[in-house]
Each structure stands twice: as structure tokens, then as C-alpha cells.
């Protein structure tokens, strides 16, 4: 019988590295405003990815992850009623949406106070180190489905933004990135909580 132990690695780099490189080029070329927007997007993507990883977590071995804080006890929690579970789901969803909106605002205005919602990610997610979770066949299928939903939502949001508000390329990128991150995080959390 084949070994069930999964061999899944979670990689975080691509987007953030590319954004940083483009931002540097933009600074060099004198497009300061666009460069700052990219810097905020870079930080936003890092924080979002960090939040996702902190939520899922990474164990000592590459085939282990930890479910932390919000998702540490899968639903329903012991003795948890439907109402409190609903409140938990709504609170987490609102928090993710508000944080992502703050990221978008930061990308275009750069107001430092908007860092507060971003910091809430760490306040909420990092304190809990939950149970161990293996990235097995089921969890892998959830992640694939979540990524598919995130791709579709990102494309749809980008198309709508393009038609309705005719954004710049940078704004369009920011919208797609934010929608992708929100849907990915929410969809995975919804099934694995």
C-alpha cells in the first residue's frame, strides 16, 4: 500500500519578489507615486501571505502544518452553538475584508493609520498555535479548490473593475491581488476551520 504521508511544501516568494523588483525599477525611473503604491502592495501581499501561513502554519517538517488561532478548533467547537459559530465566521470574514480594504487604501493613499487593521492580522492570528494538521489528500483537495475559486474571483473582479471604473494597470492589479487573497484565505478557512 502506498505511503499516505504527503509531500507538500508551501512556497512563498514569487509575487512579493516581483513586486519589490518592479517597485525598485519604478523608483529608479522617477515614478515615485507608482513605486510607493507597489511598496504598499508588496507589504500587503507579504502580510496576507504571512497571515495565511500563520493561520495554516508550518510544522517542523514540510509535510506538516499547524492550524492556529482562529481555526485552531474545527467547527463546531466543543459546546459551541450555531449562533456563536456564526458570529465567529462573520467576525473573521469582516476582519479579512476590512484588512484587505485597508491594504487597497494604503496602496493608493499611503495613510499610515491604515496600518492598524493590517497589524490586527498579527494580533488575531499569531498568538494561537493550534493543533497539528497534515496536508493530506483531503486538505490538498481543499487547497486546490480554494485556489481555483480565488483565480475565478480574481478574474471576475478584474473584469468588472475594468468595465466599471476603467482603472490604471496598477489599480487593476491591486484589485485582482486583493480579491485573490481574500477568496483564497476565506475558502480554505471555511472548509478547514
Amino acid at each position: 500500500m502506498p505511503n499516505e504521508t504527503p509531500k507538500v511544501k508551501i512556497s512563498i516568494n514569487g509575487t512579493a519578489i516581483i513586486l519589490a523588483a518592479v517597485a525598485l525599477v519604478a523608483f529608479w525611473a522617477g515614478a515615485v507615486q507608482a513605486a510607493w503604491a507597489l511598496v504598499w502592495l508588496y507589504l500587503a501581499s507579504l502580510v496576507l501571505v504571512a497571515a495565511t501561513i500563520a493561520w495554516i502554519g508550518i510544522g517542523e517538517h514540510s509535510d506538516e502544518v499547524r492550524v492556529a488561532a482562529v481555526a485552531s478548533e474545527t467547527a463546531p467547537r466543543k459546546g459551541e452553538g450555531l449562533f456563536s459559530r456564526g458570529v465567529r465566521v462573520v467576525a473573521f470574514s469582516v476582519w479579512v475584508v476590512v484588512t484587505a480594504m485597508a491594504f487597497l487604501y494604503l496602496a493608493f493613499s499611503g495613510h499610515p493609520l491604515l496600518l492598524l487593521p493590517a497589524l490586527s492580522l498579527f494580533a488575531v492570528v499569531l498568538p494561537g498555535a493550534g493543533e497539528r494538521l497534515l496536508v493530506d489528500e483531503y486538505v490538498r483537495s481543499v487547497l486546490v479548490r480554494s485556489a481555483t475559486a480565488a483565480h475565478a474571483a480574481g478574474l471576475a473582479a478584474g473584469f468588472l473593475a475594468l468595465v466599471l471604473v476603467r482603472p490604471t494597470a496598477l489599480e487593476l492589479f491591486a484589485v485582482v491581488l486583493a480579491v485573490y487573497a481574500i477568496v483564497l484565505e476565506w475558502a480554505a478557512w471555511r472548509e478547514l476551520r
Binding site: 499516505e4 474545527t74 493543533e131 494538521l133 497534515l134 493530506d136 489528500e137 483531503y138 486538505v139 472548509e191
Partner: peptide
Amino acid sequence: RLGVSRQTVNAI
């Protein structure tokens, strides 16, 4: 015992 996540057992 199965070497899978608790989420997997729950989903099954």
C-alpha cells in the same frame, strides 16, 4: 492512527 488530519476524518 491513520496518519491523516483530523479535518480529513471529520470530512469523511
